[in-house]
């Protein structure tokens, strides 16, 4: 406990990732599901940065940069979808979207 190791960051990232996953699985609001996905991406980013520091290699940070770009694109498209779905169905509750029901 005297020094922070990479293991601590791994543990924190695992916890954040799992909570993001939990949010995706249990929440019904499409917007909050998007937020949970962002949380999961952040957990990943944190790990990238931690490993970059641990290994003394800048490549990890570059990848974080890319991840953020993709996340931004994803949020833009995802939110547009959410808006148009809301217009069609007057709801962003994903439980209202069960056309795949068997």
């Amino acid at each position: 406990m005297d020094e922070v190791t990479i293991g601590w960051y791994i543990a924190l990232a695992a916890i954040l990732f799992s909570m993001g996953a939990l949010g995706v699985l249990v929440r019904r609001n499409a917007l909050i599901i998007f937020m949970s996905i962002e949380l999961m991406l952040n957990a990943g980013n944190l790990l990238f940065v931690a490993f970059a520091r641990h290994l003394g290699d800048l490549d990890g940070q570059i990848w974080v940069f890319f991840t953020m770009t993709v996340a931004a694109a994803e949020v833009a498209v995802g939110l547009a979808l959410a808006v148009s779905i809301f217009r069609n169905r007057d709801s962003v509750n994903i439980d209202d979207m069960n056309m795949m029901k068997g």
Binding site: M19, I32, L39
Partner: peptide
Amino acid sequence: VFAAIGML
């Protein structure tokens, strides 16, 4: 962690 819990 608490911020994440709060969000959820």
